[in-house]
């Protein structure tokens, strides 16, 4: 079952060793992270040494080897956001979710990441949740936002 998905990916990207990053990006899109057995298959199919695949997967921040949550919360820790109080509300959020930066909550709902600058300093502190930007964040606003997403996914699971 796993290899089928990978074969589909390899059909679109090709099996050249130079397509490694592209393949990994597709794998990440499909599985939301890079599973170990898939990477072993990638190494075999593309004829790239396993350590090379592992190295590339570790090098880029866009790749992750751990399963990620459904919602990805990125908190900007750039200079402007830092000055406007990003570390304070980050602490609060982490306390609320009970995790550290880069970790995922136990229920697999949220992954919190920090980033050095999103390039939207005038809007700081900036938070990105599932690709959507939220400006002028405060601890209160963020708590409401997280609760909203929690409720949303709760409702969805109830419907199912």
């Amino acid at each position: 079952m796993h290899t089928e998905k990978l074969d589909n990916i390899l059909e679109t990207t090709g099996k050249s060793s130079s397509e490694l990053i592209e393949v990994l990006q597709e794998v990440q899109k499909t599985y939301n992270y890079l599973p170990e057995d898939i990477l072993r298959n990638v190494s075999e199919k593309l004829e790239v040494p396993l350590i090379e695949v592992f190295r590339v997967a570790n090098f880029y921040k866009a790749f992750t080897l751990k399963p990620r949550g459904e919602h990805i919360l990125t908190v900007c820790m750039g200079t402007a956001c830092h000055v406007r109080g990003a570390p304070k509300f980050l602490d609060e959020v982490l306390g609320q979710l009970g995790i550290k930066p880069g970790e995922t909550t136990e229920d697999g709902e949220f992954t919190v990441e920090t980033v050095n600058c999103l390039g939207a300093c005038a809007l700081g502190p900036v938070v990105v949740l599932d690709g959507k930007y939220y400006d002028h964040m405060t601890a209160g606003k963020l708590r409401v936002l997280i609760q909203k997403y929690r409720n949303k996914s709760c409702k969805e699971s109830k419907k199912q």
Binding site: P49, L50, I51, E52, F54, R55, N58, F59
Partner: peptide
């Protein structure tokens, strides 16, 4: 063999 290598940056 390439069993080990540099990882991380």
């Amino acid at each position: 063999s390439k069993s080990l290598g540099f990882v991380g940056r």
